[in-house]
Amino acid sequence: MDWVGTIVQGLLLGGFYALYGIGLSLIFGVMRLVNLAHGDLIVCAAYLSLVLIEVSGLPPLLTLAIVIPVMFGLGVLLQRGVLNRVLGLGPMPPLLITFGISIIIQNGLLLAFTADTQRLPAGSLETASVPVGGWATVGVLPLLNMAIAILAIIGLQQFMGRTDLGRAFRATSDDPTTAELMGIDSKRIYGLAMGASLALIAVAGILLGMRTTFGPSDGPARLIYAFEAVIIGGLGSLWGTLAGGLLLGVAQSVGAALNPGWFQLAGHILALLVLAIRPTGLFARTRDL
């Protein structure tokens, strides 16, 4: 068996999970909310791209220019129009609302696109790869995704640390009531956070859609991968989430190499092991959003 190849494939797959996880933990960091429709929205972005390609004939990568702002707007709308209405009523209402939205999206996609799996026509990009050090070849798409994940982390950190708006995000995350007393509109912050989260996962959704197939009921699995990347890496650490996503990808890849039925199972078991042995995650820092 080609172990190096298996691990490299796992790492590349894990880059997608990392991006899912960053989107999930961004929301949790700012407003302590877990968006149960997270995975379904990832799938939604891929379908959005698919429709654009069919209607306009744009190449998949260019649809990002439209899908990212649309998903950002959708996030702002979801937060400000729906979730902000149940703020301060405890964790249950937003959780159940996002669960309801998850079911609505899944069934809506089923109605609109049937249960058949789809794939974004990426042409030559789909299989394009570059040799790495002569011992492995690496697809261009997952490499692009990995670069975006790393850029997203650096960008988020710079934003949070160096801009007034970023500091407002952190202050709101610490203590929304006091943040309001400082002139911060926390509902606006929450809207922007949800928008940013969906914009990030739109990228991952489309890039993965060019590489593998997707279907209307793939959302829950992607939510779970995002969750596992966060749990393995440790809550509140963006680099930890990246590492968590990569480890998850490797676990799945190695699991599948041993037995095709163990692909998902191996990832779940790694997440549970981390939870059992080191509940704070493998790379947790104290707080860094």
């Binding site: 202050a171 610490d174 006091t178 707080r287």
Partner: peptide
């Protein structure tokens, strides 16, 4: 505010 309410992560 009462209790100073310094933002801990800042």
């Amino acid at each position: 505010p009462e209790g100073r309410k310094i933002f801990p992560s800042l």
